Amino acid sequence: MRGDDRDDPFGDIFDEIERMMNEMTGTGGAVGDGSGFSSETHVDVYDESGQVRLVADLPGVEKEGIELKCDGKTLTISAASPHREYDERVRLPARVDEHSASATFNNGILEVTMDKLGDSAAIDVE
Protein backbone atom coordinates (compact mmCIF):
# COMPACT_ATOMS: atom_id res chain seq x y z
CA MET A 1 0.00 0.00 0.00
CA ARG A 2 1.40 3.35 -1.01
CA GLY A 3 1.21 6.28 1.42
CA ASP A 4 -1.19 8.23 -0.79
CA ASP A 5 -3.66 5.31 -0.95
CA ARG A 6 -4.36 5.35 2.78
CA ASP A 7 -7.40 7.04 4.22
CA ASP A 8 -6.74 10.45 5.68
CA PRO A 9 -7.46 9.99 9.41
CA PHE A 10 -8.56 13.63 9.68
CA GLY A 11 -10.54 13.87 6.45
CA ASP A 12 -13.86 12.93 8.04
CA ILE A 13 -13.32 15.34 10.93
CA PHE A 14 -12.58 18.26 8.60
CA ASP A 15 -15.57 17.38 6.41
CA GLU A 16 -17.82 17.35 9.48
CA ILE A 17 -16.44 20.69 10.73
CA GLU A 18 -17.04 22.25 7.31
CA ARG A 19 -20.59 20.86 7.22
CA MET A 20 -21.35 22.28 10.69
CA MET A 21 -19.87 25.67 9.77
CA ASN A 22 -22.02 25.78 6.64
CA GLU A 23 -25.10 25.00 8.74
CA MET A 24 -24.27 27.75 11.26
CA THR A 25 -23.57 30.39 8.63
CA GLY A 26 -26.38 29.28 6.32
CA THR A 27 -24.07 29.07 3.31
CA GLY A 28 -24.81 25.45 2.57
CA GLY A 29 -22.64 25.55 -0.55
CA ALA A 30 -19.60 27.04 -2.13
CA VAL A 31 -19.08 30.46 -3.59
CA GLY A 32 -21.17 30.80 -6.70
CA ASP A 33 -23.80 28.28 -5.60
CA GLY A 34 -26.53 30.46 -7.10
CA SER A 35 -27.79 31.82 -3.78
CA GLY A 36 -26.49 35.32 -4.51
CA PHE A 37 -24.58 35.46 -1.23
CA SER A 38 -20.86 35.07 -0.90
CA SER A 39 -19.43 32.61 1.59
CA GLU A 40 -16.06 34.35 1.55
CA THR A 41 -16.95 37.30 3.77
CA HIS A 42 -14.25 37.63 6.40
CA VAL A 43 -15.48 38.82 9.80
CA ASP A 44 -13.41 39.16 12.99
CA VAL A 45 -15.03 39.82 16.37
CA TYR A 46 -13.02 41.19 19.30
CA ASP A 47 -14.27 41.04 22.89
CA GLU A 48 -12.44 43.96 24.44
CA SER A 49 -12.81 45.38 27.92
CA GLY A 50 -16.12 47.22 27.94
CA GLN A 51 -16.67 46.91 24.18
CA VAL A 52 -17.26 44.48 21.35
CA ARG A 53 -15.56 45.37 18.07
CA LEU A 54 -16.32 43.74 14.74
CA VAL A 55 -14.23 44.10 11.58
CA ALA A 56 -15.60 42.83 8.24
CA ASP A 57 -14.11 42.81 4.75
CA LEU A 58 -16.67 43.99 2.17
CA PRO A 59 -14.67 44.52 -1.03
CA GLY A 60 -16.42 46.37 -3.84
CA VAL A 61 -19.21 47.69 -1.61
CA GLU A 62 -20.09 51.38 -1.36
CA LYS A 63 -20.96 52.83 2.06
CA GLU A 64 -24.50 53.58 0.88
CA GLY A 65 -25.01 49.86 0.15
CA ILE A 66 -24.49 48.73 3.75
CA GLU A 67 -27.32 48.04 6.20
CA LEU A 68 -26.62 47.09 9.82
CA LYS A 69 -29.07 45.80 12.43
CA CYS A 70 -28.40 44.69 15.99
CA ASP A 71 -30.68 43.24 18.67
CA GLY A 72 -28.06 43.22 21.42
CA LYS A 73 -27.02 39.60 20.77
CA THR A 74 -26.63 39.39 16.98
CA LEU A 75 -25.34 41.85 14.39
CA THR A 76 -26.74 41.49 10.87
CA ILE A 77 -24.68 42.91 8.02
CA SER A 78 -26.40 43.28 4.66
CA ALA A 79 -24.45 44.83 1.81
CA ALA A 80 -24.52 44.84 -1.95
CA SER A 81 -22.18 45.70 -4.78
CA PRO A 82 -22.77 45.31 -8.50
CA HIS A 83 -21.07 41.89 -8.34
CA ARG A 84 -21.89 40.48 -4.89
CA GLU A 85 -24.32 40.48 -2.03
CA TYR A 86 -23.32 39.94 1.58
CA ASP A 87 -25.73 38.79 4.26
CA GLU A 88 -24.01 37.89 7.50
CA ARG A 89 -25.51 37.24 10.93
CA VAL A 90 -22.80 37.41 13.57
CA ARG A 91 -23.49 36.19 17.09
CA LEU A 92 -21.76 38.57 19.48
CA PRO A 93 -19.60 37.22 22.34
CA ALA A 94 -21.35 39.42 24.91
CA ARG A 95 -24.63 41.27 25.19
CA VAL A 96 -24.24 44.84 23.87
CA ASP A 97 -26.10 48.13 23.98
CA GLU A 98 -27.11 48.36 20.33
CA HIS A 99 -27.87 52.08 20.76
CA SER A 100 -24.19 52.73 21.54
CA ALA A 101 -23.05 51.31 18.19
CA SER A 102 -20.79 53.31 15.92
CA ALA A 103 -19.56 52.19 12.52
CA THR A 104 -16.90 53.30 10.06
CA PHE A 105 -16.29 52.12 6.51
CA ASN A 106 -13.03 52.76 4.70
CA ASN A 107 -11.54 51.01 1.64
CA GLY A 108 -13.85 48.00 1.92
CA ILE A 109 -13.31 47.50 5.67
CA LEU A 110 -16.31 47.87 7.98
CA GLU A 111 -15.62 48.41 11.66
CA VAL A 112 -18.45 48.39 14.21
CA THR A 113 -17.95 49.13 17.91
CA MET A 114 -20.58 48.63 20.63
CA ASP A 115 -20.54 49.00 24.40
CA LYS A 116 -21.01 45.81 26.40
CA LEU A 117 -23.89 45.71 28.85
CA GLY A 118 -23.04 44.99 32.46
CA ASP A 119 -23.64 41.63 34.04
CA SER A 120 -27.19 40.78 34.93
CA ALA A 121 -28.27 42.27 38.22
CA ALA A 122 -28.85 39.96 41.15
CA ILE A 123 -32.40 39.94 42.50
CA ASP A 124 -32.93 39.63 46.22
CA VAL A 125 -35.70 37.30 47.26
CA GLU A 126 -37.62 38.51 50.30
Rank of each mutant, 00 (worst) to 15 (best):
K63P: 02
Q51M: 12
L117D: 08
D12S: 14
C70V: 02
T27A: 07
F14Q: 13
D97P: 03
V52E: 00
S38I: 07
D119K: 13
D4M: 09
Y46R: 12
D15H: 11
Q51Y: 12
V31E: 15
R89K: 15
R84M: 07
D47E: 13
H99V: 04
R19T: 06
G36C: 05
D5T: 10
T76C: 05
P9D: 10
E85S: 14
D12E: 15
D33I: 06
T113M: 10
G72H: 03
E16G: 07
D87P: 01
D115N: 15
T74G: 00
E18Q: 13
S35A: 07
S100L: 06
E18M: 10
A103E: 12
L68M: 07
S39D: 15
D33F: 08
A122F: 08
D44V: 05
L68D: 04
A103C: 11
E23Q: 12
S81R: 03
T27Q: 10
T41Q: 13
Y46S: 10
I109Y: 08
T41L: 11
G3M: 08
G72L: 03
M1L: 13
E16D: 14
D15Q: 14
C70K: 00
L92S: 02
A122Q: 08
G65D: 14
H42A: 11
G28Q: 08
I66L: 10
V45Y: 03
M114D: 03
D57R: 14
R95G: 00
N107P: 00
D47G: 06
A122E: 10
G60L: 07
F105T: 07
E98D: 15
D115S: 14
E67D: 15
V61I: 12
I109G: 08
K69D: 10
R19P: 01
R84G: 00
I109N: 12
L110W: 07
G29W: 02
A56L: 08
A101I: 09
R2M: 08
D5P: 02
A80H: 05
N22F: 01
S39P: 09
S120W: 05
R89M: 10
N107V: 04
L110M: 10
Y86C: 01
G34E: 05
L110P: 01
V55M: 12
N106L: 13
F10L: 13
